[in-house]
Design a protein around this nucleic acid. Sequence first.
DNA 1: AATTTTTAGGGGGTATTTCCCCTTTTTTAT
DNA 2: ATAAAAAAGGGGAAATACCCCCTAAAAATT
Lengths: 214, 214
Amino acid sequence: MNKIDIIIVDDHLLFSEALNGLISELEQFNVLAVLANGNELVNYFSNENRQPDIVLMDIQMPIMNGVEATNWLKNNRPEIKVLALSMECEEDTILKMLRAGARGYLLKDIHPSMLEHALKEVHKTGYFYTENVANTLLNSVNKKEKPREIFLKERELEFLKLACTEMPYRQIADTMFLSPKTVDNYRESLFEKLNVKSRIGLVLYAIKEKIVIL
Amino acid sequence: MNKIDIIIVDDHLLFSEALNGLISELEQFNVLAVLANGNELVNYFSNENRQPDIVLMDIQMPIMNGVEATNWLKNNRPEIKVLALSMECEEDTILKMLRAGARGYLLKDIHPSMLEHALKEVHKTGYFYTENVANTLLNSVNKKEKPREIFLKERELEFLKLACTEMPYRQIADTMFLSPKTVDNYRESLFEKLNVKSRIGLVLYAIKEKIVIL
DNA sequence: AATTTTTAGGGGGTATTTCCCCTTTTTTAT
DNA sequence: ATAAAAAAGGGGAAATACCCCCTAAAAATT
């Protein structure tokens, strides 16, 4: 049975080498390389031809951080699975890593046996999340709903949603049973309220704030 | 010590009564009512003054379903915790319930001891998700690894990303070291390729396809 | 080497968006 | 009842976006 090849990317040498020793002791894993940042990872792929199955990726790193490196892998080596390894439990960071394509997220204070289990799971099923991380994240899903600082009136919301279509303002006016000039007022006042400089800005705001869902 | 008061909302009478029996056997829980749909739940609150701590909520129900009922609770009785109970593991449904404010999501085939654990956790910490549900959901966050049908070249992607900012085309041209006329060509050819009629359309496409992340 | 494709650039026009400043009508609050 | 605020509408102009048709150089194909 072939061993599962792993690359460790972490700038804390003390930690990454300890990890190296830990994993190398396990029968079914093989550490291909220990690298200090995303840049070294990119270089690795242009110099070496031995590909890892899994990359254990730190997030905070100098030069090219974990999110960027994971994105690079998604675009250039999509078959390689990334398991994020971080000290922080910040939900925003976790989300960024997941969106970049990470298959799992581990905190650095876990027990070694958990790491082994996580590596096996990622290799077998393609993903792994600890219940801890999962709960943090899931709970944020419905928390994000309410707190929109800027309160928009019904009619403004209506306009904003229509501004997120390809309709020209003239047609938006027809749809809202308003004169084009009134629509122009809504546009201008929203530009100020939302601090944007163009209709594109309105669209970006509306999507960020989940006023329109794609 | 006070018992934790529970209301069961489920239209499958056989199931809900079985559940009732199961929970009533547990020392620390007390079933206040067994209701058949969301409507009955709303009526309950206008007729009875004994409030539950937790509502065990089915999702597929006639008249007023679980998502609607949970939304009603969020708006009218936000202090009551909703634990969703469903047969389906459809990620879309789960998300809808979470957004409506559910504190957890259980599949109906779980072991009774798990139900007890979940109820305790929801009451104590405010939420509970099984690893199963959590994984399903989290994995959907980055599931977008589908190949894009329309292949865009590097330079086109670059333009598209810049088109998703508030920059005017003139400035995009500067950024890309191109003449405004060339940028205009990129615009026009992308309009055709992506079948859109305005820059807004480009933005919507880019966000849908996760070419730009907000 | 010749041909096609891609990339970069242009002319000249119409339509839409953006901006600033102003009036009337309707609602809301005191 | 009356002042204040919000909603609806407008004039006019400059900037930007959109459109169609066309050329030259570089790159890829053959």
